[in-house]
């Protein structure tokens, strides 16, 4: 249970997961924000109008997955680092996950790393496809990982191989 462990329940994840059809159509943002807290920057980050206007600043963000084009502008704007972009259309075996990553050293493009789930467990090998660290991201770099299709909704972080 999230309030006790800090790990979202599978039902919570199911609720915010886009439809299979939408996932196959290319990149889409998912917002793993499950608590009503006073916070609204994600809605201002979205240029597509996919993240709906808040009636109350304490509302949970509502994202229209059909309007979302997976641009990822919201990823580094979320103070909770709770937004990820999933792309299941990458290849037959692999999908892409774009995630915020505020640790040093940053990985290299092409580096093999280990995908980590919401409980901090190692779940699979992953490959770094892209590392973005522009000024606009304001010190919240965005790392794109390629992972097996089955792990797209599991992997939420990574560690470098060989430990620290």
């Amino acid at each position: 249970m999230l309030e006790k462990t800090g790990v979202p329940d599978p039902e919570q994840i199911n609720k915010i997961t886009p439809s299979q059809e939408r996932l196959k159509n290319g990149p889409v943002a998912i917002v793993e924000c499950f608590q009503n807290i006073p916070c609204d920057p994600c809605r201002y980050a979205c240029r597509q109008g996919a993240i709906k206007e808040f009636a109350d600043i304490n509302d949970l963000p509502v994202i229209d997955h059909e309007e979302c084009n997976g641009c990822g502008l919201c990823i580094s704007e979320c103070p909770g680092l709770a937004i990820f972009v999933i792309d299941a259309s990458y290849s037959a075996d692999e999908g892409l996950i774009k995630m915020p990553y505020e640790y040093l050293p940053l990985p290299e493009q092409g580096e093999e790393v280990i995908g980590i789930d919401t409980e901090g467990r190692e779940v699979c090998n992953a490959r770094v496809v892209k590392v973005q660290n522009t000024k606009a991201l304001d010190r919240t770099p965005v790392v794109t990982l390629a992972v097996p299709q089955a792990q797209l909704m599991k992997v939420r972080s990574f560690v470098k191989k060989g430990g620290e």
Partner: peptide, 23 residues
């Protein structure tokens, strides 16, 4: 306490960094 007092997005962030939270 039996529940995490801080924002849960902070809690999920530290959990995926491999830090256990023992309520």
């Amino acid at each position: 306490a039996s529940r995490i007092g801080g924002y849960l997005v902070h809690a999920t962030k530290v959990r995926r960094a491999g830090i256990p939270i023992l309520t």
